[in-house]
Amino acid sequence: MGQHYLVADVGGTNTRVALANDGKLQTQTIHRYRNTDQSGVVEILQTYLAEQAPEARPEAVCIDVAGPVGTDEGQLTNLDWTVTSAELCAATGATFGAILNDMQAQGMALSHLPSTAFHSILKGTAQSGNRMVVNIGTGFNSAVVLGEGPKLTVPGSETGHVNLPVPSPKIYELHQFLTERFGFASAEEVLSGRGLGHIYGFLAGLDPRQPFPSSHHIMSNLRSDPHARKSVDIMLE
C-alpha cells in the first residue's frame, strides 16, 4: 500500500498543497491557493482534501512556513497566521504532523533534486560541501546547508530581517528612506517582492508614508519609466 503524505508550502502570498507517496511528490496533485482568499492553513488543507483529493487518507502531514518555527508551532512573518502540528492532524486525520521553516525545507530538498533542476547563473568551479539556499518572494530569507548527501543539517533562519548593507552612498540614502518609513531598514524591505516598490518610492521622491507602486506595475513599465528600470538596477546591486 505504501505511505501517503499531505505536504504544503505556506508562503506570504500563496500556499501550494500536494500529495506524496513513499517519499515521492505526486506533481499532478499540486494545487495553489491565494492566501488572501483563505482564513488560515487549516482551512486550505481541508478545502484541498475535500475538493482535490476526497479519497486521500494521509498518514502524516508536513508543511513549511515562511516564518519562525517553535516547538510544534509555526508563525508566518508577513501574514497573521499561526498553526500547530496538532491542528494539522485534527484537520487532515493524519496521525503525525510536522512544521518546518521554509528555508529548512528548501535546504533539505537539495539532496533530492535531479541535476536537471539546477541552472548555472554565473560560471564558476563546482565544489562539494556546504551550500546556501536563498528565497526571494513576498519576503526574503536565506539559510546555510551543512553536509552532503542525505544527511543534511539546515538551521532555521530569518536573515531577511538583518540590517540592510550599505555598499554605496545611494544605498545609504535608501537606508535612511526605509528607516523613516519603518523605523528599521531591513534587507527584506529591499530584496523581497515588495522591496521593488520601496526602491521605486525612494527614487521617485514619494512620501515614505504613502503607498508605493506594486512590483507588477514596475516590471510592466521598464521601457517607459526610468524609475522602474533604475529600481531593478538598485535591487540587483
Rank of each mutant, 00 (worst) to 15 (best):
G129K: 04
A185E: 09
D64W: 00
E173G: 07
V154E: 04
T125Q: 15
T159D: 11
C89Q: 11
S120T: 15
L191K: 13
F212Q: 15
F118Y: 14
N21Y: 14
L164V: 02
N221D: 11
H175Q: 08
V190T: 02
L191I: 08
Q127L: 13
T84P: 00
R16Y: 02
N78I: 01
V65G: 00
R209N: 15
A185P: 06
P169M: 01
V162N: 07
Q28K: 03
N141L: 05
G205E: 10
S120E: 15
G97E: 04
F96M: 04
E189D: 07
Q127K: 12
P58Q: 09
H216P: 05
V83G: 12
P165G: 02
A98D: 10
Q127F: 10
T13V: 06
M108P: 07
T179P: 10
V69A: 02
G201T: 10
Q75S: 14
A109P: 11
I199T: 04
E87V: 03
M1C: 02
T159P: 05
S85T: 15
L196W: 11
L113W: 10
G139M: 10
E188R: 06
T82M: 03
L191P: 03
L110Q: 09
K123H: 07
G12N: 07
Y5S: 10
D64H: 03
